[in-house]
């Protein structure tokens, strides 16, 4: 099933002086999908997101919210919610006041505003800290509030730039559930991350970027099939350890068992991490 395009980037270039941050990127984000943008540090993910929301103007190429227009226009931006990678909150306002302020900028007011503020706080599991000043929040809580600001006006398109960095596993889980719920309601999400598990769990499709270019784009399954290589079977026998690359780990295991006493074994299925390593020659997370 092909869905309509929500956000279209066509041959987009952006350089900062001599540094080429985005180099001829073309990308269509489909309506209702969660799209993962993966790439090592400096790949150009944030630059792409910033152009998509009109913060940066591409040197070349066009960005269009399909059927609405360019994000240079305020009314187009109203349809986008952004969680910026750099936190952007008022430390001396409470979490609730921050949300309420940004909600007003989005044109919300009265009952609807109060409702949305409550909802957004739930979204990031911050309701119990709503009346505390942001400066008293932990890093992960600020990150969560930053995400709440993105969803306050219930926009059809969400651009989330590493929204869960430093967020603890429980809150992170709740956030994933909520994002998946949004997808069910037809919202479109662009999600950049270094966490492979997140991409694998959340994303319908994943684009892998490096040096400002798109190296591959497909579903997680397809990417793994195409670029992940074969499974690896690690088996320990009385005679020592063996490591076998194989397409059929089960058959291989049976073969090994016939050859001698198996003590332990492990199968490493190809995953995004391996796809990534294969495509970029680098680990996903720069340690």
């Amino acid at each position: 099933m092909m869905r309509a395009t929500m956000l279209q980037l066509t041959n987009v270039h952006k350089a900062f002086g001599a540094i080429v941050a985005v180099d001829g990127l073309s990308l269509s984000i489909r309506q209702g999908e969660v799209f993962g943008l993966l790439g090592p540090n400096g790949a150009g993910k944030t630059t792409t997101v910033n152009m998509a929301v009109g913060l940066l103007r591409p040197d070349q190429g066009t960005i269009e919210l399909k059927g609405v227009g360019s994000p240079d226009q305020p009314y187009v931006r109203a349809k986008i919610g952004v969680a910026t990678q750099a936190l952007a909150l008022y430390d001396d306002l409470t979490g609730e006041e921050n949300l309420s302020f940004f909600g007003k900028l989005q044109g919300l007011s009265g009952r609807r505003l109060a409702e949305r503020v409550g909802w957004a706080l739930e979204f990031v599991t911050l309701s119990d800290r709503r009346r505390d000043r942001v400066k008293t929040y932990s890093g992960g809580m600020k990150r969560r509030l930053n995400l709440a600001v993105a969803v306050i006006h219930d926009p059809p398109l969400l651009l989330l730039d590493e929204p869960t960095v430093g967020v603890d596993p429980q809150s992170r889980n709740a956030i994933f559930e909520n994002i998946l719920a949004l997808r069910k309601q037809g919202r479109t999400v662009v999600y950049t991350t270094h966490y492979m598990e997140e991409a694998q769990r959340l994303c319908d499709r994943v684009g892998i970027m490096d040096h400002g270019r798109l190296l591959a784009l497909d579903t997680v399954e397809q990417l793994i099939t195409a670029h992940g290589g074969r499974s690896i079977l690690l088996a320990e026998r009385t005679s020592g350890e063996v490591r076998v690359e194989t397409d059929d780990p089960l058959a291989e295991l049976l073969r090994l068992q016939k050859e001698g006493q198996l003590q332990r074994f492990r199968v490493e299925r190809p995953d995004l991490e391996r796809v990534f390593l294969h495509l970029t020659g680098r680990e996903l997370r720069d340690a």
Partner: peptide, 9 residues
């Protein structure tokens, strides 16, 4: 926060 204001419509 200026970035946020600029993102706003």
């Amino acid at each position: 926060t200026l970035v946020r204001l600029r993102i706003a419509p």
